[in-house]
């Protein structure tokens, strides 16, 4: 299916990756290829410079910003169940969060941008890691106006601050909401619940009364189909 256009797309992306390598390696950007996609990891302070080049230069022509989102890497790779070798007590249903390694310094939060070039028909992903204690990154609204609401969303859900954003308010959560709900340390059931109180004749907030529970534990299984990952994914993408 659609193998002809796929090959064309792969060729364009290969070319894009090598051009990116050439142009941005002295800005200490890294180019990654996986699953037939190109990712450019940009240092926090170089974002605007890189964004401007990607937008203005006809060679790239990334005139459309498709998406901006935050990612919290603090639980990355942590399973709730140990799966290598059965313990002599068997598997329990209980789910204990395993303490994982702290993510590397300033590798917890990232802002991820998805760009689309209509003229060259290519896509590119930018990833910018931001400081864990002071997650601040420059806003790309001056480059792509569509970043406005996406950055508000990333601020709302992850607490990433976008420096230079014209109107950085919360967007999806309730008026007066406290916390950044998509961070991995924010519980799925939330912190507060709301009900109408007859005595006070108004809606009040209280701490949640339910306990969190895990229906299906998070497990990671070694799958030998994916072991030689670097070779196979590339082959699969090329095929």
């Amino acid at each position: 299916m659609s193998s002809g256009s796929q090959n064309g797309m792969q060729g364009r992306l290969d070319q894009l990756a090598s051009t990116l390598e050439e142009r941005f390696s002295d800005l200490s950007c890294q180019v990654e290829r996986s699953c037939g996609e190109v990712t450019l990891v940009v240092p926090t302070d170089k974002l605007i410079e890189v964004a401007n080049t990607l937008h203005d230069d006809d060679e790239f022509g990334f005139n459309e910003l498709i998406d901006v989102c935050g990612v919290d890497y603090s639980d990355y790779g942590i399973s709730e169940w140990q799966t290598d070798g059965a313990p002599n007590t068997g598997f329990g249903r209980g789910v204990a969060e395993q303490a994982g390694d702290e993510p590397e310094q300033n590798r917890r939060f990232a802002a991820v941008y998805h760009l689309l070039s209509i003229s060259n028909n290519t896509r590119l992903r930018l990833r910018v890691f931001v400081d864990t204690d002071q997650p601040i990154v420059a806003s790309v609204v001056p480059v792509w106006a569509s970043a406005n609401w996406f950055e508000r969303e990333a601020f709302d859900l992850y607490g990433i601050l976008f420096d230079g954003h014209p109107d950085l308010r919360r967007i999806l959560t309730d008026y007066g909401f406290i916390g950044h709900p998509f961070r991995k340390d924010f519980p799925l059931i939330g912190q507060v619940e709301m009900r109408y109180d007859e005595q006070q004749a108004r809606v009040i907030y209280e701490p949640v009364s339910i306990d969190p529970r895990t229906l299906v534990p998070r497990v990671t299984r070694e799958d030998n189909r994916y072991l030689n990952e670097d070779d196979t994914t590339q082959d699969a993408a090329d095929a």
């Binding site: 996986s34 699953c35 996609e37 990712t39 992903r125 994916y226 994914t233």
Partner: peptide, 8 residues
């Protein structure tokens, strides 16, 4: 369990 990685 899919392999580690990211896709759009």
């Amino acid at each position: 369990c899919p392999p580690e990685g990211e896709v759009y």
